[in-house]
């Protein structure tokens, strides 16, 4: 009986081990490429929100009261690019906000989001609706809010939660940069 149970566990363990080794191989092949893709996404996002000749320079100590900021990059004299993670309606949204030297928003771009297709996901899409939504934030300073909350940002159709999350992110970025003085 004991040898029978050992045989069962043995075969299962063997199969799992073979699978693990094969996966380790595939992971080794793809790891580097996946890391590159992620790095390129961040770099592309920075270029979109704050076009600048300067090289992005990671800033180590920044004052952030909201807890949403995950990285800040100084773009020479042109301003800052702030990376944040906000809570959307279907999970986390990783976004990049550019703030120029005058303290106004220069652009908003999304690195990672999984909002509802056709609704919240439009915020990140490269079509007329998406661009129109993102362009609303350009030039704003101080704080922004969707029309429902008394501001002047038109939320996306049936995507108030996503729109509010983006506004929250922009506000956090603006206040973080304002702290630099």
């Amino acid at each position: 009986m004991k040898t029978y149970v050992l045989k069962l566990t043995g075969v299962l363990f063997l199969i799992t081990a073979v699978v693990a080794v094969l996966l380790g191989g595939v992971n080794a092949i793809t790891e580097g490429r996946i890391a590159d893709i992620n790095a390129e996404k961040t770099a592309a996002a920075i270029r979109t929100v704050l076009p600048s000749e300067a090289e992005p320079e990671p800033v180590q100590d920044y004052a952030d009261d909201t807890g949403l900021v995950t990285a800040v990059y100084r773009m020479g004299e042109d301003g800052y690019a702030v990376q944040l993670v906000v809570a959307g309606s279907q999970g986390e949204i990783t976004m990049m906000v550019g703030v120029d030297a005058e303290g106004a928003v220069s652009g908003v771009s999304f690195i990672q989001m999984s909002e509802t297709a056709g609704l919240g996901a439009v915020a990140a899409q490269d079509n007329a609706k998406g661009r129109a939504f993102r362009d609303q934030f350009v030039g704003k300073s101080g704080s922004v809010a969707v029309t429902k909350d008394g501001g002047d940002i038109d939320a996306l159709t049936s995507a108030t939660i996503t729109s509010r999350a983006v506004a929250t992110g922009v506000n956090a970025a603006l206040s973080c940069v304002a702290n630099f003085g």
Partner: peptide
């Protein structure tokens, strides 16, 4: 299940990369 999970993870990793 283990064999299927192996192939799924392979496809997952390859898709993330390519």
């Amino acid at each position: 299940i283990v064999i299927i999970a192996g192939f799924v993870t392979m496809v997952d990793l390859l898709m993330q990369a390519f």
